[in-house]
Design a protein around this nucleic acid. Structure first.
Lengths: 356, 356
DNA sequence: CACGTAGGTGTCAACGTTGACATTAGAGTT
DNA sequence: AACTCTAATGTCAACGTTGACACCTACGTG
């Protein structure tokens, strides 16, 4: 690629030695100094002007901004980062246990929205449900000197983070509280137990007595709390938990699909509560469900729940994301305040089967 | 800030100076120098050892790695970035037109997978279908000195990127070719026309003649090509395009839902082709569809397509992501090669309505 | 008029790392 | 013994920015 004079646009600041044989020598990015020398001011003044420091005469500021625009000069965040306390970049890291979970996309959007407001960028990592990948991603994030971290954890011991927090990095957990870190960190979870109970009570109120349960492993992600909500609802209604109606330790959609075939065939529930959206979509894809549609309540929203008439317990993931990000920036602003544990309320969204 | 001797590591890192009045003074992160002085070698040697430079005696390397581990020293990517050509970080940026589109999550995973292999991190931005946000995100990315950029564009003139490419940044477009940049950049798209034609022919083969069309605006995202595929299939079958069967300029799910109500009620198609997944989920949520389920083929996969018996044209987004990321790193490795336009083949995945 | 004050601007030395080049020690060669 | 060669290590000056602090001017104020 040969860069000819016309490429310039904002202006041409071609590096003179045009007869250089080799091709594609990339141009050097313009820096503060280019503006400074063009205008006969110091680099420092340019720096100040571009960052909106008020200690610059308005007329100077305008000249500088104009020239910077003309040259296409933009502050180098990397260099600026190096100068900051802790060398922190204006970047936050987000690790997702599984980025294809439909819960996470809107959550990420919530995080983005807050980060953008504050002028931060978002690094993402997809742990693919593997604690080892999660750990590696987090290490990389710190090597990049993120200002903070939002973690939807998959590992069950993140003790190694305690270290990092001591270096001034803010850390917030979303979706599930900090495994292996006691109460010492900020987190955003949702009303797992109460909302599950509400969901199961909804099914009871519709006259169902035999309510199946599909759940993921009890550790992490509030699975215990959701289970507790299920138990509580049944007990309050004077019903016993029937182990035949329960399938847990399910992880993938395929697990849930298989479990659903089995559950619906053998235990014949009137209705089913599902502990998260991934498992619910598994259920919906089972032949047994297609044959005999029954009332379902799922934790977590998913696309098309309405079209299936599946009621969901929706802990608005966008809000979870925003709340998590806000918590992060608050902690960044004040490292001393006590750890916060936020609970975003989840609400039951009832959907009727559109096919009656 | 007072750095005390015991700063050590993975273990108990009580910040000793307990009597310090102000709380939470973060410790200083250990650096190469800490290892160097602990071992009586130069910083440079530590740098070499930690980066795997072979010009270090094996025994020295081991001592250094061990000590670095003990102290929790990790290379500072920010500082290293500053030293690199173009000050590029080991980071790539990804802008998504709409991060909640189910197409993008697996694509992002594909990008992550390649980036991780190469030791790069991924910055994401969500343009929310707003060209202005897209532009701002891209500017921020460059301020952070990303090595390269993967763009699923929403804006219809990204001419401002030409500049950046000249500074040595690699840029790849996914999903839709570079608007306003001619043929000058790498891109990954899919077989829009051919696969659409295949999808429509599938509907024709099932005996349908009146095939509705729901589509998004013709500019961008291969909408034109998809439309062309629809037209070609009909014409090949000796059918005319009936304008009553076509609804386009649809953007949101709600648009599609409304359009579907109208289309199904008034024009009474036998089957429908939908131009993307977002619109398809809109269709599926319409009352008209719930009442009268008909054969549907949609471009782009979405969760639960199988459960609805909707056939999809699946341009495996994971592969698109991987291909895009590979293109990016290839360009980073060789800026001079001619721009590549990759087409990932999309294949028709037929699903039968599970309810018969 | 000496003196403080505030508003602009500049100088200098970092930040943590690495490229270029210098140095040293030891082994091998004549 | 004088030499070359190589492997291993070190020194120094960047990279582009900003914090700390110095300076200079103009403008009160007593």
């Amino acid at each position: 690629m040969h860069i000819d004079e016309g490429t310039a646009l904002t202006t041409d600041h071609g590096r003179a030695g045009a007869q250089s044989s080799g091709p594609a020598e990339p141009r050097r990015r313009p820096r503060l100094e280019d503006v400074a020398s063009a205008l006969g001011v110091s680099i420092k003044t340019v720096s100040r002007a571009l960052r909106g420091d008020p200690k610059v005469r308005e007329s100077t500021r305008q000249r500088i901004v104009a020239e910077a625009d003309r040259l296409g000069v933009q502050l180098n965040d990397v260099a600026a980062g190096l100068r900051r306390k802790n060398q922190a970049m204006t970047t936050i890291g987000v690790t997702l246990g599984d980025c294809t979970n439909p819960f996470f996309a809107p959550m990420l959007r919530g995080i983005h929205s807050v980060a953008t407001e504050r002028g931060y960028l978002v690094l993402t990592a997809d742990a693919q449900n593997d604690p080892e990948l999660e750990h590696r991603a987090i290490r990389s994030f710190f090597a990049h000197r993120v200002a903070g971290l939002i973690i939807a954890p998959v590992g069950d011991d993140l003790g190694y983070l305690a270290n990092e927090a001591a270096f001034g990095s803010a850390i917030v957990f979303v979706d599930s509280p900090p495994p292996g870190l006691g109460e010492s960190m900020d987190s955003v979870t949702t009303t797992n137990a109460a909302s599950t109970r509400e969901g199961v009570e909804h099914l009871l109120a519709r006259g169902h007595q035999r309510i199946g349960y599909l759940g993921h492993p009890r550790r992490g992600s509030g699975a215990e709390e959701r289970w507790a909500g299920y138990v509580a609802a049944l007990e309050a209604a004077g019903l016993r938990v029937d182990p035949d109606l329960v399938r847990d330790e399910l992880v993938t959609e395929a697990d849930a699909c298989r479990a659903a075939e089995d559950l619906l065939e053998t235990a014949r529930p009137d209705a089913v509560f599902v502990d998260n959206n991934r498992l619910c979509t598994g259920l919906l894809q089972s032949k047994a469900f297609a044959r005999r549609r029954l009332d379902v309540v799922s934790f977590d929203r998913f696309e098309l729940a309405a079209a299936f008439g599946v009621s969901v317990i929706d802990s608005d993931p966008y809000d979870v994301g925003r709340a998590g990000a806000k918590l992060l920036f608050d902690r960044l602003a004040d490292a001393t305040r006590p750890p916060q544990r936020l609970e975003v309320p989840a609400r039951l969204v009832v959907h009727e089967d559109p096919m009656y």
